[in-house]
Design a protein around this nucleic acid. Structure first.
Length: 882
RNA sequence: GCCCCUGUGGCGGAACCGGUAGACGCGGCGGACUCAAAAUCCGCUGCCCUUGCGGGCGUGGGAGUUCAAGUCUCCCCGGGGGCACCA
C-alpha cells in the first residue's frame, strides 16, 4: 500500500504535538473575562515507569480539559510529582542511589514517557514535592497549624510497621497490616505529631452533603469513616473512691439492663490499679501484646479482668456493677470505658455469658408479650438490638427506644451525672514518620524550652544530602551533624526533630500550589487561588477515597482558617476511574526455571511449579491455543485481574504508544467501557481502535464525494438522504456534548462512530451529498478532538482549515434539526410489539391510530374486535387495547 | 456480621422521566478483491420453531404494580467493594 494512502500516526502525532508546544497552546493565566475551569488528575508518584492506569487517568482528564477549553473556559490543567516517599529510600538502600538522584531521574523519565500521549498540560507549572521550594511552604503551614492549635504533640499508641520501620496512620492500616509493606502492624508507644482533623469532624461530615458531583460511593465511605454517633456520656461513681468512670453509650435507654462496666487496658484507672496489683499489670501486658496483630483479629476472643471495684448505677439506688478491664475496649474511642448491657448488645452478651454476668431484658418489640419476650431473651445467647419499648426500666417503662434515650439523657443531666454527646470514629491524624525522604518537621527540641518552632526566617529546614543508608533506621537520626543545632529561644545546644512528615501532607495542598507554582515568599498567591479554586474536575482512583481525599478536605479547611485561601472544599467534582485488568498467563516450569511468586491460577499449575508470563511473550496459534513465544511451551490462560507486576500481566504503555500511537491508545481507553468501571486491556481492543482511525482517515483523504470548499453553506432544502444526515449530525453534537459533560465517553465514542458510519454509507449519487458529508465529517472530528486530538487536527487540516482545532470553539447545534423528519412510532396491540410505522413528528392520536391500524400485522391482531382503549406517547409508541 | 454497588447476546457494553431491548464495538459466519495471503470493503449474527411468510421466548430467579417493566415495589440467588470489637 502506498504510504500516502495509509494513516501515519507517527509523523502526524509528532507534528501536532510540536505545533501545540510551539504555539504554547496550553499555558494559562488568570483571566477574569472568561469562566475558569480547573481540571486535575491525581498527580503521579515518580516510580520511573508510567503504567496503563496513568494512561487511563490522564486520558480522561485530558478529554475534560480539551472539551472545556473548546467550550470557551479558561482551563487550568497542570502536572506535578508526588515525589517524597519510601520507594526512593528503598532504592537507596538496595542500589546505593541517593533518593534525590533516583527521584529526579524518574521524574525526567516519566515526563518523557507521558510526552507522546499528547496531553494538553501547562508544563510551565510543573513541580515536585521534594523541591525545598515546595516543602518550605509546607513547613510554614505546619508552624501556622501549631499556632492555631491544629498541630500538637502527644505520646500515644501508634501503628508501627516493623518492615518499613515507620509509624502508620489509622487510614494506612489495612486488615491489621501496613498498606505498603503488608507486614502485620505492631502497637508501640511513641511521641508523635498530630493534626487535629477531629476538630473538623462535624464540618467534614456536613460538607459531604454539598459534594454533589462526587460519587456516592466515596461520599458514603467518608461518612462511615468519620463515623458520627449520637449518645450520652455520663460518670459512674466508684464505690469507696473519690474518682469516677466516664462512659459513652449510644443506648442510654438500656441503662437499666446494665450488668457491668468495662474499661480499656490503657485507661488511666487500669494503669493506676496496675501500680499496686501485679495481676492487673500482667493482664494489661497481655492485652498490649495482642494489639492489632493478625492473631488477635483472628481469635477475637473477649477477655476481661475483674478489678474488684464496683460502680453505682446512676438510676437505681443501692445497685452496683462490677468493673472489668476488657481487651475489646479501645482507649481512643469515646472515653475508653463503657457499660455493658448484655441483653441488647451482642458483644456484651458474649462477655456476660463468659463471666457469668446477669442478662436483663429492658427493651421488647411493641407487638410482643413483654414478659415472655424478656424470659426468652434472658435465656438466649443472641442479643436483641431492634426497636421496641422500654420494659423493666423504672421511669422509662413504656417509652419507645428513641424517646427512652432522650428521657434517660434528661435524667442524667438532672442528676449532674452526664449529658447527651456526639462521638466520632475519626481520630486525629498522626503525621510523624521515622524516615529520611520526606519533609522535615521544623521543630527543635530543647532541654530547657521544650518543643521550639524553627523561626520562619530560617525555613526551609532542608534535608541533608550526605546520608548513610547502610545503617538500619532513620538516617536523619544517624547523621553526624544535621540534628545538632541551637535552640532558637535560649541559644543552648539542642536537637532537631528527626521525624519527617507523612507524604500525604504534600498531596493535601498540591492542587492549590498549581495555581501559583512559582510564588516564592508564600505558598500561594491569594488572587490566583481565589480565581482557580476549587478544582472543578478531579480525576483519580477510588483507592484514595478516604486517605488523600479526606486529608485534602481537612487541609483546605485548616488553610482557610489560617488565612491562606477562601474555600472549604478543594474538589468540586470528583471522578473515580476503574482499574485496568488483563488476562494472566502461566507456563508450567517443572522445576526447570525459577517459579514466580505463588503462581496458582485455579485448576492450573500447582503452587511453586509455574511462572507468570508477560502478555507480550504469549502467542496465539491458529487453533486458539496459547504458547510462549520464546520456547513454544503451552500457556495456560488465567482470569483477568488488575494489572500488577507480581502477576506479570502488565502491558507497557510506551510500547503501545510506539506501535499504535496515542490516539489509538486514547480511543481504546475511552471506548466500550464506562470510565468508572474496571476494563480489560486486550490486543484486539487496541487493534480495533487503530482500524477505526484508519477508516476515519480514509473517509477524509479519499472521500466518495466532492466535498467542496471549507465554509460552503449547507442549503436549506436538501434531498431526503442528505437531510437525514444533516439532522443526525446535529443530534450527534447535542448527544456527544451531553455525554462528555456526564463522563459517558464510551457513549460519545459510539455516537460519533454512528455518524461516521452514516457518512460512509451515504450514496455518492445523493444530491447535495458532498456539502452535507463535509459538514458531518467536520463535525465528527471536532467532536472527536478532545478524545483523539492528533488525527482530529490532521483531518481538520486536510479538509482545508487553517486554524487548528485547539484554537477552535466547540460546535453548536441547531435545535430545529434535532428531530427527525419522520419518526418511527412503535405499535403495540395489548402491550405487545406488532410493528412500527413512520409518522410526522407530533402526530395526534387520530393520525397515529389510522397509520397503526393500516399495518397488516396490526390488522391480523385487531381484526374486527372493538377498540377498548388507545394510549399514545407522542413520537414514541401507540398501544391499542382490544 | 453490618453498609453500599451490581447482574442485559459468545464477549465489552447501550437503552433519557416506565414507552421499539441488544445502539456502538469485539468475536464469529458468509461473500467481494487477490495467484494466494494480509489489509480493505459488503452482508448476516439474542435464543427456539419454520423452506419461507411468520410465530413464540428473552435483561440472575420468583411474585407484584401498570395499557406497557431491563427500568418501580417486595422476597430469593450470584458477583464486587467498603467497614469490621467504635460501646
Amino acid at each position: 500500500m502506498a504510504s500516502e494512502d495509509s494513516y501515519s500516526f507517527r509523523e502526524v502525532e509528532a507534528r501536532w504535538q510540536a505545533l501545540w508546544a510551539d504555539r504554547n497552546a496550553f499555558a494559562v493565566s488568570e483571566d477574569t473575562s472568561r469562566p475558569k475551569y480547573y481540571v486535575l488528575e491525581m498527580f503521579p508518584y515518580p516510580s520511573g515507569r508510567i503504567h496503563m492506569g496513568h494512561v487511563r487517568n490522564y486520558t480522561l482528564g485530558d478529554v475534560v480539559a480539551r472539551f472545556r477549553r473548546a467550550q470557551g473556559y479558561n482551563v487550568l490543567h497542570p502536572m506535578g510529582w508526588d515525589a517524597f516517599g519510601l520507594p526512593a529510600e528503598n532504592a537507596a538502600i538496595e542500589r546505593g542511589v541517593h533518593p534525590a538522584v533516583w527521584t529526579r531521574k524518574n521524574v525526567a523519565d516519566m515526563r518523557e514517557q507521558f510526552r507522546p500521549m499528547g496531553l494538553s498540560i501547562d508544563w510551565s507549572r510543573e513541580f515536585a514535592t521534594c523541591d525545598p521550594e515546595y516543602y518550605k511552604h509546607e513547613q510554614k503551614m505546619f508552624l501556622d497549624f501549631l499556632k492555631a492549635g491544629l498541630a500538637y504533640r502527644k505520646e500515644s499508641w501508634v501503628n508501627w510497621d516493623p518492615v518499613d520501620l515507620c509509624v502508620l496512620a489509622n487510614e494506612q492500616v489495612v486488615d491489621g497490616k501496613g498498606w505498603r509493606s503488608g507486614a502485620p502492624v505492631e502497637r508501640r508507644r511513641l511521641d508523635q505529631w498530630f493534626l487535629r482533623i477531629t476538630r473538623y469532624a462535624e464540618d467534614l461530615l456536613q460538607g459531604i452533603e454539598e459534594l454533589e458531583r462526587w460519587p456516592d460511593k466515596v461520599r458514603l465511605m467518608q461518612t462511615n469513616w468519620i463515623g458520627r454517633s449520637v449518645g450520652a456520656q455520663f460518670r459512674f461513681a466508684i464505690e469507696g473512691r473519690e474518682d469516677g468512670i466516664d462512659v459513652f453509650t449510644t443506648r442510654p435507654d438500656t441503662l437499666f439492663g446494665a450488668s457491668f462496666c468495662a474499661i480499656s487496658a490503657n485507661h488511666p484507672l487500669a494503669e493506676d490499679l496496675a501500680r499496686t496489683n501485679p495481676s492487673v499489670r500482667e493482664f494489661i501486658t497481655e492485652c498490649g501484646r495482642m494489639g492489632t496483630s493478625e492473631a488477635d483479629i483472628e481469635s477475637a476472643e473477649k477477655k476481661g479482668f475483674d478489678t474488684g471495684l464496683r460502680v453505682f448505677h446512676p438510676f437505681v439506688e443501692g445497685v452496683t456493677l462490677p468493673v472489668y478491664i476488657a481487651n475489646f475496649v479501645l482507649m481512643d474511642y469515646g472515653t475508653g470505658a463503657l457499660f455493658g448491657c448484655p441483653a441488647h448488645d451482642q458483644r456484651d452478651m458474649e462477655f456476660a455469658r463468659k463471666y457469668g454476668l446477669p442478662v436483663k431484658a429492658v427493651v421488647a418489640p411493641k407487638d410482643q408479650d413483654a414478659q415472655a419476650f424478656a424470659a426468652a431473651l434472658e435465656a438466649s445467647d443472641e442479643a436483641y438490638t431492634g426497636d421496641g419499648v422500654a420494659i423493666n426500666s423504672g421511669f422509662l417503662d413504656g417509652l419507645p427506644v428513641a424517646e427512652a434515650k432522650a428521657a434517660a439523657i434528661d435524667r442524667l443531666r438532672e442528676l449532674g451525672a452526664g449529658d447527651g454527646v456526639v462521638q466520632y470514629r475519626l481520630r486525629d491524624w498522626g503525621v510523624s514518620r521515622q524516615r529520611y525522604w520526606g519533609c522535615p518537621i521544623p521543630i527543635v527540641k530543647c532541654d530547657c524550652c521544650g518543643m521550639v518552632p524553627v523561626p520562619e526566617d530560617q525555613l526551609p529546614v532542608e534535608l541533608p544530602e550526605d546520608v548513610d543508608f547502610s545503617v538500619h533506621g532513620n538516617p536523619l537520626e544517624h547523621h553526624p551533624t544535621w540534628k545538632h543545632t541551637t535552640c532558637p529561644e535560649c541559644g543552648k545546644p539542642a536537637l532537631r526533630e528527626t521525624d519527617t512528615l507523612d507524604t500525604f501532607f504534600e498531596s493535601s495542598w498540591y492542587f492549590a500550589r498549581f495555581c501559583s507554582p512559582h510564588a516564592s515568599d508564600r505558598a500561594f498567591d491569594r488572587t490566583a487561588v481565589d480565581y482557580w479554586l476549587p478544582v472543578d474536575q478531579y480525576v483519580g482512583g477510588v483507592e484514595h477515597a478516604v486517605l488523600h481525599l479526606l486529608y485534602s478536605r481537612f487541609f483546605t479547611r485548616a488553610l482557610r482558617d489560617c488565612g491562606y485561601l477562601g474555600v472549604a472544599e478543594p474538589f468540586d467534582g470528583l471522578f473515580t476511574q476503574g482499574m485496568i485488568c488483563h488476562e494472566t498467563y502461566e507456563v508450567e516450569t517443572n522445576g526447570e526455571e525459577p517459579a514466580t511468586e505463588a503462581a496458582t491460577t485455579e485448576g492450573a499449575a500447582t503452587e511453586g511449579s509455574s511462572k507468570w508470563v508477560y502478555p507480550e511473550d504469549v502467542e496465539q496459534r491458529p487453533d486458539g491455543s496459547l504458547i510462549r513465544r520464546t520456547d513454544g511451551k503451552p500457556v495456560i490462560r488465567g482470569r483477568s485481574i488488575k494489572m500488577s507486576k507480581s502477576k506479570n500481566n502488565t502491558v507497557d504503555p510506551n510500547g503501545i504508544l510506539e506501535s499504535h500511537g496515542a490516539d489509538a491508545a486514547r480511543l481504546f481507553m475511552l471506548s466500550d467501557v464506562p470510565p468508572e468501571r474496571d476494563m480489560d486491556w486486550s490486543a484486539a481492543g487496541i487493534d480495533g481502535a487503530s482500524r477505526y482511525l484508519g477508516r476515519l482517515w480514509r473517509l477524509a483523504s479519499h472521500p466518495a464525494f466532492d466535498l467542496g470548499a471549507p465554509g460552503t453553506p449547507v442549503p436549506d432544502t436538501l434531498s431526503p438522504a442528505a437531510e437525514a444526515l444533516r439532522r443526525q449530525t446535529h443530534r450527534t453534537m447535542a448527544g456527544v456534548t451531553a455525554d462528555l459533560e456526564k463522563f459517558r465517553f464510551n457513549s460519545a465514542v459510539a455516537r460519533i462512530r454512528e455518524l461516521t458510519n452514516a457518512i460512509a454509507s451515504l450514496d455518492p449519487a445523493t444530491p447535495d451529498g458532498g456539502v452535507v458529508a463535509r459538514f458531518a465529517l467536520e463535525t465528527a472530528v471536532r467532536l472527536f478532538a478532545p478524545m483523539i486530538p492528533h488525527i482530529a487536527e490532521e483531518v481538520w487540516a486536510t479538509l482545508g482549515h487553517d486554524t487548528p482545532l485547539v484554537f477552535s470553539p466547540w460546535p453548536v447545534w441547531d435545535e430545529a434539526y434535532l428531530q427527525e423528519e419522520t419518526v418511527q412510532l412503535a405499535v403495540q396491540v395489548n402491550g405487545k410489539m406488532r410493528g412500527t410505522v413512520g409518522v410526522p413528528p407530533g402526530s395526534d392520536q387520530d393520525t397515529a391510530l389510522a397509520a397503526a391500524l393500516a399495518l397488516p400485522t396490526v390488522q391480523a391482531q385487531v381484526g374486527d374486535k372493538p377498540l377498548r382503549k388507545v394510549i399514545l406517547v407522542p413520537d414514541r409508541i401507540i398501544n391499542v387495547i382490544v
